[in-house]
């Protein structure tokens, strides 16, 4: 594969359930080595999209390509190069953790035993316990270990942290992703779908915000945090009318105004300073706040 082939390439994807459009013209592309966020509310079409990538669902129209291949035609070739952790992890209940990992390893040409050992001990997982007795958090941990040990080129995570308590969430996502990217980071791509954006704030290189089956916004995370701002203004008198095109939302309370803006290279602050406010404070929006501002 040459370096410019996207790991994931989705073009004008449409997937209907009866009359309902779950995905309605989605286009996005993920470069190798990136950690890509796929953000949207419940029911936005995230899981349907992932199922199309895995050939668990066929697109109504449009195309999906993984590593430049069609997952419907080259299913085995595609799946041998990726690992998928669904939002609801299920194992054979009669197997222990040890047996489960060995069973899953038997399908893979390669399995990093050292990574497995390291993560098992870091998470203090009881290897000889049956998977049916594990907590939800432990089951997700086992699934993530099973996903990174084959060292696939692509890790597909569907809502990996939903339903977990905040302590577990904090601890293990970085640990697992760190272990995954340890060898050959240029060929370790992560595609994570979630609505718990704050959990992934620092991990995400680029993201697409999906709503009602369409991409609303695709941006580099650093660029997003530079463009989206919260500006608080206080005026000596009644605030003037503010109608700059960059303004997405505004709130007024007596002499104060709070703006949510998206700048496009021409700083708003100069134009705002001309209105002579008493004080100005500017703060970048975190990804979760951008999500809320865009969907509201």
């Amino acid at each position: 594969m040459n370096a410019s082939t996207p790991v994931i390439d989705i073009s004008k994807l449409v997937r209907k359930y009866g009359q309902t459009d779950a995905v309605n013209g989605l286009t996005l592309s993920v470069e190798p080595g990136k950690c890509y966020g796929f953000f949207g509310r419940n029911g936005a079409g995230k899981t349907t999209t992932i199922k199309c990538l895995l050939n668990l669902l066929q697109p109504t129209s449009g195309s999906v390509r993984l590593f430049g291949l069609d997952p419907a035609r080259d299913e085995v070739a595609v799946k041998s190069r990726l690992a998928y952790v669904p939002d609801n992890v299920a194992f054979y209940p009669w197997m222990t953790i040890r047996e489960t990992l060995d069973y899953l390893a038997s399908f893979r040409p390669h399995w990093n035993r050292e990574t497995e050992r390291g993560l098992l001990s870091q998470f203090r997982l009881p290897e000889h316990q049956k998977t049916s007795t594990l907590s939800r958090g432990q089951r997700v941990q086992v699934a993530l270990i099973a996903a990174v040990c084959p060292e696939p080129e692509l890790l597909l995570l569907d809502e990996p942290t939903s339903g977990l308590d905040p302590i577990i969430r904090r601890e293990f996502i970085e640990t697992v992703i760190g272990a995954y990217q340890e060898t050959d980071p240029g060929n370790r791509t992560i595609f994570v779908s979630t609505h718990l954006i704050a959990e992934f704030e620092g991990l995400i290189d680029e993201f697409t915000l999906i709503d009602q089956g369409k991409a609303l916004l695709t941006l580099n995370a650093d660029v997003a945090r530079q463009q989206y701002k919260r500006i608080r203004l206080r005026f000596a008198q009644e605030p003037p009318v503010l109608d700059f095109p960059e303004i997405l939302q505004q709130r007024r309370e007596a002499r104060e105004v709070e703006l949510i803006v998206r700048e496009n290279g021409h700083p708003l602050t100069d134009r705002i300073a001309a209105l002579r406010p008493e004080s100005v404070s500017t703060q970048a929006l975190a990804l979760e706040e951008i999500f809320v501002a865009t969907l509201k």
């Binding site: 080595g33 990136k34 970085e174 992703i177 760190g178 990217q181 980071p185 620092g202 991990l203 290189d205």
Partner: peptide
């Protein structure tokens, strides 16, 4: 450091 700061190792 990536794990401590909860950021991507690329960063």
């Amino acid at each position: 450091l990536a794990e401590q700061l909860r950021i991507n190792r690329n960063t």
